[in-house]
Design a protein around this nucleic acid. Structure first.
Length: 469
RNA sequence: GGAGCGGUGGCCGAGUGGUUGAAGGCGCCGGAUUGCUAAUCCGGUAGGCGGGAUAUUUCCUGCCUCGAGGGUUCGAAUCCCUCCUGCUCCGCCA
């Protein structure tokens, strides 16, 4: 959520942000509602102050007179009762007008709040303007020694690659038919070494963040309340992407939603808290099951392990002080962690600077990381896939947009320090998402004999084996 | 699922209708004292939202908030209702 005061001070900045993100939000309506609300609120407050003043005077008097009333008799008693009634009537006269104004404020509030949630965070000025993913800009790419993603797999390795679908079938690593039988479309079952390989990559990625980079591991709920989805910025925009468990319809107190990323619970962990500045930055990592409806993606990436409804993901978040330079530095660092991880696994990748149209409402900046997948992409003249990069990671920089929604603040000047609280900054990035990451892992490390070499870092989690098949 | 007890400021914890937005403690900040440190003493220290002044530093002022929302009342942290939530016991169970 944006800062309403910032919008009042500089509407042009937010209009420009909407334009660059290609989002249509009626900011004039927001400003108008805000102005009306404050006008009514101010008036109501003035009257309320008057009422309080009157009540403060008459309250103790009433108490005193009522005490006298108990022991009074005859005409004295009547006189006291009348005096009490007169005192009681004074603040009551203001009540109707106040309540009328409050009704008006209450009528404005829901629309204002709902609208405010849809106002996007303006993209940073150094984010290239564009409409969608087609306008994203490659920052750099990395290849392991002896591999050239531009030339392609065959040129680099001397044989034609199988796709991950072939490898998975030939090595018995996944069962799609039965997955669909059990869970429906876009479901799968990892079998045998496939299941084991997934555990290996998740465990490696998790330990990598904890042991090498000092992140605190958390296990988190994947079934969360709506407030968490709103607070983290996934709702209302992404409501259609989340599975919705309608507990209220069954007599429960509230509905819950399945999270599409561990980010939701990692960020929600400190919702409504005033954090100790000395504890910042908070660095959390989790491995969680992620659920996505993939609404609107019908017919897209229907085959294989690329786009499915349920997967496992190691996710990293950082919550830091409200400082742009610090935010930017963490963003770079969090991307660096992933580069280090991918390089240790020998997976070619590239970094993409996402353009303004691809950021989503909550991000000021986003960098995607794509791994090279030899079995992906349009077929070449020989009918085989040319190989293509596919998104495996996404690193977001949100400033205070998410933490404002979550009401996560800290007090500058240390614990118990003076001065106003400040909304924290937050960032997040994938560490590894599986089974999607298995696609490049299998395809890149396949051998001419149909086997797949296991990268060194994963071997401890695979019983020490060096290859599959 | 049944029964009971709770939810108060950064933290702990008093408070059952009228100067209580809230005792006390911890923590923290400022000051005093102490030849360092510890200890001691004094003072300060909730958040949100408005309005005004002003050197973008800061000051003044009002309203709201004692889990959330509604109600009773002239007046609610305190009484009533609903919901959320924590703990304990029983039942069931991975």
């Amino acid at each position: 959520m944006i800062d309403l005061k910032a919008l009042r001070d500089d509407p042009a900045r937010f209009r420009d942000g909407c334009a660059r993100k290609g989002v249509a939000v009626d900011l004039d309506r927001v400003l108008a509602l805000d102005a009306q609300k404050r006008q009514h609120q101010t008036r109501a407050q003035e009257l309320k102050a008057e009422q309080n003043r009157v009540a403060k005077e008459s309250g103790p008097q009433i108490g005193r007179l009522q005490g006298q009333l108990k022991s009074a008799q005859g005409p004295e008693r009547d006189r006291l009762a009348a005096e009490i009634d007169a005192l009681k009537a004074r603040p009551a006269a203001l009540k109707a007008e106040i309540s009328d104004l409050e009704t008006r404020v209450n009528a404005i509030e829901p629309e204002l709040a709902a609208l405010l949630l849809t106002v996007p965070q303006p993209p940073d000025q150094d984010v290239p303007v564009g409409k969608g993913s087609e306008d994203n800009i490659e920052i750099r790419r990395w290849n392991p020694p002896g591999f050239d993603s531009r030339a392609g797999f065959a040129a680099s390795r001397g044989f034609n690659p199988k796709t991950h679908l072939d490898l998975v079938r030939d090595l018995g690593l996944a069962d799609f038919e039965r997955g669909v039988k059990i869970g429906g479309t876009r479901h799968y079952v990892l079998t045998g070494d496939g299941a084991r390989l997934q555990h290996a990559i998740l465990r490696y990625a998790h330990d990598f963040m904890v042991d090498r980079h000092g992140f605190t591991p958390l296990t988190v709920p994947v079934l969360v309340r709506e407030e968490m989805m709103v607070g983290t910025g996934f709702f209302p925009a992404g409501r259609e992407q989340a599975y919705h468990i309608e507990e209220v319809r069954r007599g429960g107190g509230y509905d819950v939603f399945l999270t599409g990323t561990g980010e939701v619970s990692l960020m929600g962990f400190h919702q409504d808290e005033i954090l100790d500045e000395a504890a910042l930055p908070l660095k959390y990592v989790t491995v969680s099951t992620c659920f996505r409806r993939e609404a609107g993606a019908a017919g897209k990436d229907t085959a294989g392990l690329y786009r499915i409804h349920q997967f496992e993901k190691v996710e990293q978040v950082v919550i830091c002080r409200a400082d742009e330079a610090e935010s930017r530095a963490w963003h770079a660092r969090m991307i660096g962690f992933v580069e280090e991880l991918l390089q240790s696994l020998g997976l070619p990748y590239r970094l993409l600077q996402c353009c303004t149209g691809d950021l989503g409402v909550k991000n000021a900046d986003m960098v995607d990381i794509e791994c090279f997948m030899p079995g992906r992409g349009e077929p070449g003249p020989d009918g085989r896939p040319r190989g293509a990069y596919g998104e495996t990671h996404s690193a977001s920089r949100l400033y205070d947009y998410q933490c404002r929604r979550l009401n996560m603040r800290y007090r500058p000047g240390g614990a118990g320090g003076q001065g106003p609280t400040v909304v924290c900054h937050s960032l997040n990035n994938t560490v590894a998402a599986s089974p999607r990451i298995l696609i490049p892992l299998l395809e890149i490390h396949q051998n001419a004999d149909g086997s797949v070499s296991i990268p060194g870092p994963l071997r401890p989690f695979m019983g020490g084996r060096e290859r599959l098949g």
